[in-house]
Nucleic acid binder design. Structure first.
Length: 602
RNA sequence: GGUCCCGUAGUUCAAUGGAUAGAACGAAAGUUUCCUAAACUUUAGAUACAAGUUCGAUUCUUGUCGGGACUACCA
């Protein structure tokens, strides 16, 4: 009977409902489970879970101590879940029966989808990566990409339908800058001629543009022109702006060059995405969506939701929401960033009618996203309420922000290659290359290097900005991806040595006593699906990093004090093998959600 | 100026209002005839400051100090 309940409920929930029933039986009060604070018992006390009774004191008109004693005695006497209790001040420490945890283990150790749930029922779009097409991906983009990919996997895992979207910002002044510089300096060279990856090739011309722009400004300023005027009148800038106008006018040559250079970039991005193991279900291109935003704004203007100034520019007044006025169309009728985003949001909704639309975008755009949602709400667009900004903090260097102008930007491709090289070096230094073919080794280095990188970027709460410390990120010890991967490989090694085909699922429950470390590991594993559900609710992959690390750490500790294959008797050995199997399943499952592979050997 | 976010060991990160604030790296010292030592064990080390709310505050409120983001007819 417990077994069935366990499939749909978790351990803490079971404890809460047991307490709920006990409260009703003793005091005839119906409490909601949210009114029952359950914590894990601190290691220095005996017990597994603790009920804090101070809050109940008022509700039940009794002293915390009395409540704790009465509830504890009742639970131990009447509920099969508990074996003993202890009261210290107002804290009721409850111990869970070993047989309960053993039964849980026997039920789930072979479940290959353990960790999945079906609680989610929404259709959710997740937009991430969303690069500009004028330069290659840098380290900051990696946080975005890994976050989006992991959040998508986590949401899907708890039962939501997920659509992964990449919105390519393929038009605008930025790409025109690269195009102008290419026309001026490239001598018609292509990435193939130059043996350079397409996105880097185009990015190099973006840099060339800025160099030339700076030197032209310097020339103008030397002739006595003020800086702001020089910034506007530098010939190469005027040329880029002219090219943007040509593009919007549909000039055939401009469009052809634009398409060619974007294709170079896409080919480069594709290589990077593939290496990173990142995929999308759907690509949107701003060149296709920016015009629809304009017509939507014009329609809203007719409906008097917006107003126009004397120069014909179109604005929305958000002062009733505590914000100011926001421009939606320039005086000359062209779109701004916000206009495009309005169009894209509506188009996406027409395509998918999703319940929720998650934007993985840095926190410097908090205001922008707030305004976008507000505008769409004012326009009463059905997509508006589902818009959710998954805001993440910037990645900074120990020396401060990455600045492209100062050349402190860490390139994504370089970073990946470096991590893989370090994985290779570490493996070779440890002499762990025997028994692998050279292809397998290449695969392993990639698995470990990417594992380290992804884990490093995902282990911090997305909301918080994080410091990228090059020396620390390449560490393969401690709270890192390779540590977790190593634990997985060790488990696999044990399982290879045991012939596990004939592992009996049924145990004679009565004659096994769990050690405290076995019990801790089991509690962690039992809570795992709930932990994942929490990660989904908060869209926070760092929770997954933490739990797989805890399982790995706990497992390593277990392994030091307990022999699996040489256990004292057969039933203990079987139980420990089950523990190995479930731990392996949870580690691999969690890593998979993070986009990290779990190697069988390393 | 206005709006918002953030201040936790030397460093990077944890902690639904709960017990003596957890890890990791770094530092110091140990563990290998035994399932992978990329492991494990031990030691030292922190809530910016000041009030308030209450049985109880890293968490909530206010103020001070310090850091950051946004506040473009850029994207």
């Amino acid at each position: 009977m417990r077994k069935n309940i366990f499939c749909v409920m978790n351990l803490v929930h079971l404890i809460k409902s047991a307490i709920q029933q006990a409260v009703f039986a003793l005091y005839q009060k119906q409490l909601s489970v949210d009114e029952l604070p359950i914590n894990e018992t601190k290691p220095e006390f005996t017990g597994d879970y603790t009920l804090v009774t101070f809050g109940l004191s008022k509700l039940l008109q009794k002293k915390p101590d009395e409540i704790a004693h009465e509830l504890g005695n009742y639970l131990v006497a009447n509920d099969a879940l508990f074996t003993e209790m202890e009261v210290i001040k107002g804290f009721l420490n409850l111990s869970i029966k070993d047989s309960f945890l053993l039964e849980f283990l026997a039920t789930h150790f072979q479940q290959s989808n353990y960790g999945n749930s079906e609680l989610g029922d929404k259709k959710i779009m997740v937009e991430y990566s969303s690069p500009n097409t004028n330069k290659p991906l840098h380290f900051g983009h990696l946080r975005n990409i890994f976050l989006g990919h992991a959040v998508s996997a986590i949401l899907k895992n708890v039962g939501h339908e997920v659509i992964k979207v990449n919105l390519i910002n393929d038009r605008g002044i930025h790409i025109c800058k690269s195009m102008i510089a290419w026309q001026l300096f490239a001598n018609k060279q292509t990435p193939t001629d130059a043996h350079v990856k397409g996105d880097h090739f185009v990015g190099d011309y973006y840099v060339k543009f800025n160099d030339e722009y700076k030197s032209q400004m310097a020339t103008l300023m030397a002739e006595g022109m003020p800086e702001d005027e020089a910034a506007k009148k530098a010939p190469i800038m005027l040329a880029a702006q002219d090219m943007l106008r040509q593009w919007e006018a549909g000039d055939a040559d401009t469009l052809a060059l634009w398409k060619t250079m974007n294709d170079w970039v896409y080919a480069g991005f594709e290589v990077s995405y593939q290496k990173l193991g990142i995929t999308f279900d759907r690509y949107y291109y701003e060149s296709n969506t920016y015009l629809s935003g304009k017509s939507i704004v014009e329609k809203a203007l007719k409906n008097n939701l917006l107003f126009q100034k004397e120069d014909h520019s179109v604005w929305i007044d958000l002062s009733d929401a505590g914000l100011d006025q926001k421009l939606l169309l320039r005086g000359d009728g062209t779109s701004v960033y916000m206009t495009q985003d309005i169009g894209t949001a509506i188009l996406k909704y027409l395509d998918y009618h999703m319940d929720q639309s998650v934007y993985v975008i840095g926190d410097e755009q908090n205001y922008h996203m707030q305004v976008l949602k507000l505008i769409l709400q004012k326009m009463q667009e059905p997509c508006a309420d589902g818009i959710q900004h998954l805001s993440y903090g910037m990645v900074e260097l120990p020396s401060g922000k990455m600045k492209s102008r100062e050349g402190t930007v860490v390139d994504a491709d370089d970073m990946v290659d470096e991590m893989i090289a370090i994985a290779k070096k570490n493996t070779e230094d440890l002499g762990k290359v025997d028994g692998f073919t050279s292809e397998e080794l290449q695969q392993l280095y990639q698995t470990l290097g990417l594992g380290a990188l992804k884990f490093y970027l995902l282990r911090v709460d997305p909301k918080k900005k994080m410091i990228f410390n090059p020396e620390e990120s390449i560490d393969f010890h401690g709270f890192t991806g390779p540590f977790v991967q190593y634990s997985h490989a060790r488990i696999c090694s044990i399982l290879r040595k045991a012939s596990i085909e004939s592992l009996p699922a049924e145990l004679s429950l009565s004659d096994i006593t769990l050690s405290s470390i076995e019990k801790n590991l089991l509690k962690l594993l039992a809570q795992y699906p709930t932990t994942i559900y929490q990660a989904a609710k908060e869209m926070n992959p760092s929770i997954v990093c933490n739990v797989v690390y805890q399982v790995a750490k706990e497992f390593n500790g277990f392994l030091v004090d307990h022999s699996v294959l040489k256990a004292s008797d057969e039933s203990v050995k079987n139980m420990r093998l089950q523990l190995c199997l479930l731990s392996k399943q949870v580690i691999a499952h969690g890593l998979n959600l993070l986009g990290i592979a779990a190697p069988e050997r390393m």
